[in-house]
Amino acid sequence: MSYNFKETMNKPERLAPGHRMCAGCGGTIAVRNVLRGLHEGDKAVIGNATGCLEVSTFTYPYTAWEDSYIHNAFENAGATLSGVEGAYKALKKKGKLDATYKFITFGGDGGTYDIGFQSLSGAMERNHDMVYVCYDNGAYMNTGIQRSSATPMYADTTTTPVGTKSSGKPQNRKDLAAIIASHDIPYVAQTTFVQNFKDLHIKSEKAIYTPGAAFLNIMAPCPRGWRYNTPDIMEICKLGVETCYWPLFEVVNGRWILNYEPKKKLPIEDFLVKQGRFKHLFRKENEYLIEEFQKEVDRRWDELVWKCSR
């Protein structure tokens, strides 16, 4: 698969304007660019877990989707698309359908890491020919910035508020991409908005066109929940990658591949300082928390490098 940025940009738009996501939303940036992975002429059915994306892109009677779209509930996007893909196989088998369809489902981290985890795990284990895309903004943004198991340590959320006895979320975030990779499915990748989207575009196309189950974990910043200056989204994503907080990697048929290694790994402060949800870490008395955060980033990065070097 040769990659050409301008060709990718010249493809027809598959997410129409007029949806009601926030100005500067990272979620729809993720969606638009994942859908660029579809080949022209191929049809798709898009699934979607309940969340910001769903309530904003299909507010009756306005759908922003140019493809067939199904929202079912919060916790079952994996199972719902399993059924749609099953229907495709059945109709093909019975000679009732000629067209080629691809199956892509989107969920936020709430619908993916947490309440939809079982449904996702089941769909992946059954190896349905579909891509599950998590646009990970690290909290339940739709309901007002509550913590999820994707929320990074020490983040200030409405259910892990910073207080006199609390420094934000006490726990680490779940490493979902690794968990899904442990399902031994054909393709797992993690990416975000860097390198002019080359990494994301290539991984999306691979995920969509790899037969069997595929999972994409995309860091998609939320200006409201992360409390940063909206136009800075690309810079934040870059810092996520350059600090090794959000590494770019793939797991292809069980083989771990590191896609990018910063020439000079930046300190985690550079990523945290841009975001209001970590503001409390920059008080003098909380410096040790940043050290803790850095230790965890380092530990995970080392483990990833080790996995990818095998």
Partner: peptide
Amino acid sequence: VDTEFIPVESEHSSMSAAIGASAAGARS
């Protein structure tokens, strides 16, 4: 039969998948 039989991981998912299949145009 030439049915797609999908042994899912829970009843929530069995009904969810049946809904997906029905919406997709299949008798489920």
